[in-house]
Design a protein around this nucleic acid. Structure first.
Lengths: 224, 224
DNA sequence: TGTTTATAACTAACCAGTTAGATAATCGGT
DNA sequence: ACCGATTATCTAACTGGTTAGTTATAAACA
């Protein structure tokens, strides 16, 4: 709400720390990004409405276009934040200090938790793939971002193989895609699955069962 | 096609077989459905344009609304065709006559081939899930359709367990979702994966590797 | 003073769905 | 067979509301 106090000129003694200042580029940008993330995740790129984003973020339309240029570039900025956030979560894991099996299980379960806790990411990526990754490819920040994760997987595979607990000859890209697929597809396609199988898939107990299922499947696949 | 030749009147000598007759409800409906499937798959529900569907199908706008009522109902009709087609492919397999392992591998590889050969289906389902399965739930024909497939999986699990080649305690819904996930997610998210991993994922050789990867993962998971 | 940030009103294109009516097939009665 | 009424299919032009993006202007700051 942020009473947009005009008052103006000197007058304002500004005793109170001015809970909200009148002009704050960074905060405005951030409000737009938060609202845009929600709107794009709710409706997909094509369903999302710029007018709804400015309504929720309480920002003028021209401000949005001033900061982001176009709906497309705004979507790209949203995706960049999403990828950054996913990478930050995944690299927080200190997997290097774990045994290969423990590390791999942690990685799978943590990846699963991302989709559960931030389902918006899943929806944004689904929408982006419907557009053939047009925005991801436009971004210079996203593409280099996933190297560290693939490196982690390679390192786990190598350590596991040396320790004799994992088989050799595993393709790390296939493995990464499968780790993601087993948890992300469950979440992203839950609505059609729930309609068809007439079961509840999003209860805490069911989600835990799914996480274990995914981790078991990956570990059994790797086991020597 | 079935040239419903007017004849009638008299005048019309009808020498040439009149390659295209003027009025054919079934053919018109079908042309609309074909064009709509493509358009909805290309652009998603929100991105798809009714005007583009009528342009491609060479049908008048009011005919489309006469046959299908609304864009939503047209999308539902498209989904019904898609689910019918998927089920028809999957139930064509005569898995009952195979060993449990052979049957399961066939099921996984055949499911993978569906997404490869008809990528439109994948995209339509992704769009539908962004809309929380609104249209699938509206359809009375889709929901009962998947019972036979789940029954096939249960039957394979039971036979495999009795033969001592599969473990017990496998959740058939989790298994079905994983079979789908391992192949569908690879296809549906290939654009972002290709952008990030800088590899080509859709070459015939790469697809074959992926099918084997998926089948191996499922079978190792089930192995006693 | 000049630059950055904000606002409201505007526009040109777009889009799902409608209206009003034409043209072709069908059928009942003769 | 033939006619006229009825129905099914098709067409073009229109409508009312929506949408991404712009313009013109003013206020806040350095």
């Amino acid at each position: 709400m942020a009473a947009s106090r005009s008052k103006a000129k000197a007058a304002e003694t500004e005793a109170a720390p001015a809970a909200e200042t009148k002009r704050d580029a960074a905060a405005t940008r951030e409000r737009i990004l938060v609202a845009a993330t929600q709107e794009f995740a709710d409706k997909g790129y094509d369903g999302a409405r710029v007018d709804e984003i400015i309504r929720v973020s309480q920002v003028n339309k021209n401000s949005l276009y001033h900061y982001f240029g176009s709906k497309e570039q705004l979507f790209t900025a949203v995706l960049e934040r999403v990828y950054e956030n996913i990478r930050a979560r995944q690299s927080d894991l200190s997997i290097r200090s774990m045994s290969p099996e423990e590390g791999m299980r942690t990685l799978v379960e943590f990846t699963a938790r991302i989709w559960e806790e931030v389902p918006e990411y899943n929806r944004l990526l689904a929408s982006e793939n419907l557009h053939e990754a047009r925005h991801v490819r436009q971004s210079e920040r996203i593409v280099p971002m996933y190297n560290p994760l693939l490196a982690t997987i390679c390192e786990l595979l190598k350590r596991g193989e040396e320790a004799g607990v994992f088989r050799g000859g595993i393709d790390p890209v296939d493995l990464y895609i499968s780790i993601t697929a087993l948890s992300a597809h469950y979440i992203s396609h839950r609505h059609t699955f729930e309609a068809i199988f007439k079961t509840e898939l999003m209860t805490p107990a069911r989600l835990e069962q799914r996480r274990r299922h995914a981790a078991d499947m990956i570990l059994r696949y790797l086991k020597a």
